[in-house]
Write a protein that binds this DNA or RNA. Structure first.
Lengths: 185, 185
DNA sequence: CAGTATATGTGCATTACTGAACAAATCAAT
DNA sequence: ATTGATTTGTTCAGTAATGCACATATACTG
């Protein structure tokens, strides 16, 4: 995939979309362990064999689903890296909102425990370039400590916002979190 | 198709559903003449060739779409023929409501003029068995006159209800129309 | 009018999806 | 433990959908 964006067959995309959608819907009212491949194929209105055509098993499906969202968020981060913390946070919360079903499911108590850690890991990676303990208000702090402080609070805020049904609109969250980030970075 | 309900390939159903849905959506904000096959395939996310696999042209598509709904309504009529006019009307208006997009589009001023006549023709066929001018309150009336009277009013009521955004819920309409039918049949 | 673009309908080789069958693994309950 | 029922993962031949090319027809436009 160096320069070959040779358009994927639309049947592949449609099948994968249907499968992922069905899986998410099942996740929202069933435990991951209780979901069978048959459940997914029934709900997605897709042959059972088609699922194996794209995913090794349901763990692979979950991982790829998570991976795709992490990737999308990575893109958003990079395309907003030039903006200030207020403006830069908006596409972030907008993305969270537009994929509410995914995030609420993954962050639910019986959701996907692996998501939380992958999410945290991703944020550490992204914020690493932002922190500066060589000068300014954070001079003298350990980089890893500050980084952990920021990321933990960010994950916490997101988790709270999602699991509480998004009590504030994205632009309000973006602004508030922007203030808090600016204060600490 | 005597007793061979040998299940249709789900790909066929999915494609046809997508095509019909796309076509209806386009009809709701475009004139029929201005809709191209390309428009439909784009919106349905289906190859242009796939449309020709199922329909000869867009006229055929429209006719089959109308035909299917007429057929569904025929089934409803027959399965409700034992009920009184009040109860029997409920599944009717429920069906109209659940396919609001279709009926509102077809009955719109620039909709499908052919639908109105097919609709009327269908109703005449169905009501023909109901009218009785040999005795009772309608003794002495010409059957064709009474039939035309009933059907015209029925079409008119439906058209009004749909194009005015369904101002009353189905069960109210069923009851009201039930009273009016009983008075004239 | 010529010329250009867009839409149509058809044919075809390739591809993804399908249903069915199968053996193996897992689970449930006796 | 031993049944019996699901679920799993794989294989395979058949089928529908795909993209592309092509010729034709039908607008637009200068």
């Amino acid at each position: 995939m160096i320069l070959t964006m040779s358009k994927v067959d639309r049947r592949i995309l449609k099948s994968q979309e249907a499968i992922k959608k069905a899986f998410l819907e099942l996740m929202s009212d069933k435990n991951f362990d209780d979901i069978t491949i048959q459940d997914i194929s029934d709900r997605a209105n897709v042959s059972r064999g088609t699922i194996y055509l794209h995913y090794a098993d349901k763990f692979d499906l979950l991982n790829k689903l998570i991976g795709e969202h992490i990737n999308e968020m990575r893109k958003i981060c990079h395309s907003a890296s030039e903006l200030d913390y207020h403006e830069g946070n908006l596409p972030w919360f907008a993305y969270l909102e537009s994929h509410y079903l995914f995030f609420s499911t993954m962050l639910a108590s019986k959701g996907a425990p692996s998501f939380r850690s992958q999410f945290t890991e991703f944020l550490i990676e992204e914020f690493k370039e932002e922190v500066d303990t060589t000068a300014g208000k954070n001079h003298g702090l350990h980089e890893d400590v500050l980084l952990q402080f920021i990321v933990t609070s960010y994950v916490g805020i997101v988790e709270w916002w999602i699991t509480n049904g998004m009590p504030h609109p994205p632009h309000v969250m973006a602004e508030q979190v922007g203030v808090l980030l600016e204060r600490n970075l």
